Computed example of a mutant assay.
Amino acid sequence: MNGTPTASAPVLAAYSYCEAVTAQQAGNFSYGIRLLPTAKRRAMSALYAFSRRVDDIGDGTLDAASKTLRLEETRALLDRIREGTVDEDDTDPVAVALTHAARRFPIPLGGLDELIDGVQMDVRGETYETWDDLALYCRCVAGAIGRLSLGVFGTVPGARDAARASEYADTLGLALQLTNILRDVREDAANGRTYLPAEDLAKFGCSAGFHSATPPPGADFTGLVQYEVRRARALFAEGMKLLPMLDRRSGACVAAMSGIYRRLLDRIAQDPRAVLRGRVSLPGREKAYVAVRGLSGFDARSVHRQTVKGRA
C-alpha cells in the first residue's frame, strides 16, 4: 500500500459514477459488493467499471480491427493508472477512481491486462480444444478478477494457508465463468462463439452447436451439461476455501456472489435444456436472500457441506 490517500470531491464524484455503473450493470455481483464497507465498496466499483468497459468493447458491434484498437487504447489508459499519472481532474471518472483505489489498496493491476488479453481472444474468435485451453481463457477473464478483488479484500492476519489465497480466488473465478458459459451457451452460439471444450462437445455428440431450443439430433446434451456442472462444483469447492481467510464483510461479499452462482448452477443442473430455451436466472428476491445469508456467515459455514451434497 502507498499510504491511505484522502478522497477529494472530484475523486468522490468519480467513485459515485463507478458505483452507479455497478448498480445498473453488475447484476449478480452488485449484491455482494453492497455488503462491503465504504472504501472497499468504492474500490470494487472502480474495478467493475473498468472491467465493464473492457467487456463492452468485446461484446460491441465494432469490427475486429476497431475492437483491437479500442482495447489497446484501454491498455494504454491502464498503464497511466499504473504509473499514477492520472490526476483527479482527469475527465475519465473510471480512471480517476481506479487510480485512487490502487493507491489505497494493493490491487494487482496486471490482472486487468489479463482481462484485456482474454477479451482479445474473443475478438479473434478463438475456440478451445480441451478444458486446459478453456481454463487459460477463464483465468484471464474471471480468475484475474478474483485476484484483483483479493487485493481489495486482503486476508486476515494469521489466516491459515493464506499463501494460497490468490490461487483460491483464481479458482473461484473459474467456477463463476464456467457457470456463465453454461448459462449463455445458446446466446453465445447465436453470436458465433463456442466456449465449451471441443473434446467435451465431441464426447457427448454436441459438436454441431446450440442454435435452437432443442439439442442436435443424437446429442446427449443433458450428459454434457451434467459433466460441466460437476467440473464447476469441484471448482467451487476448491475456491471457497478462500472464505476463512477473509474478514467478515469481505467474506460475506464472496459468499453472496458465489452463493448466487451456485444456486444458478443448481437450477441449470435440474433442467439442463432450460439454457437452450432462454437465459436461466434467479429472481431479485432470491439473490437478496443469498446476500443476507452471506452477511450472516451462514454460507461461509455451510458451503463445503452444500457443495459436497451437490456433487453427490
Rank of each mutant, 00 (worst) to 15 (best):
N2V: 06
T4G: 00
A13F: 11
A14V: 08
Y17L: 02
Y17C: 05
Q25K: 14
A26G: 12
F29H: 01
L35Y: 06
L36T: 06
T38A: 15
T38F: 15
R42M: 08
R42C: 05
A43C: 06
A43H: 02
S45R: 03
A46T: 04
A49L: 10
S51E: 01
R52S: 07
D55L: 03
D55Q: 05
D63P: 07
T68D: 15
R70N: 03
E72W: 00
R75V: 03
G84K: 06
V86D: 00
D87S: 11
E88R: 01
E88M: 00
T91P: 05
T91Q: 14
A95V: 07
H100W: 13
A102E: 04
P106Y: 07
P106K: 08
G111L: 08
L112M: 15
E114V: 03
L115H: 07
G125T: 12
T127C: 04
D132N: 14
A135Q: 10
L136Y: 15
V141A: 09
A142Y: 09
G146T: 03
L150Q: 04
G151I: 03
T155H: 12
A159Y: 14
A159G: 10
S166C: 05
S166G: 09
E167K: 04
E167M: 01
E167N: 00
Y168G: 01
L172S: 08
L172P: 04
Q177I: 06
L178E: 06
R183Q: 14
D184G: 13
D188E: 14
R193M: 11
T194F: 05
P197K: 07
A202P: 02
F204V: 04
C206R: 00
S207G: 06
F210S: 00
A213T: 15
A213Q: 15
P215C: 11
P216N: 13
P217V: 09
V229E: 02
R230S: 10
R231M: 02
A232N: 02
A232M: 04
L235F: 13
F236W: 11
E238Y: 11
M240H: 14
M240R: 12
K241L: 15
L243I: 12
P244E: 14
D247F: 07
R248T: 13
C253G: 04
A255P: 05
S258K: 09
G259K: 00
I260W: 04
R263S: 13
L264W: 08
L264A: 12
D266I: 09
D271S: 12
G278Y: 12
G278P: 10
R279F: 10
V280N: 10
V280I: 14
S281T: 15
E286R: 14
G294V: 06
D299Q: 12
D299S: 09
S302R: 13
H304E: 12
T307G: 08
K309F: 11
G310V: 04
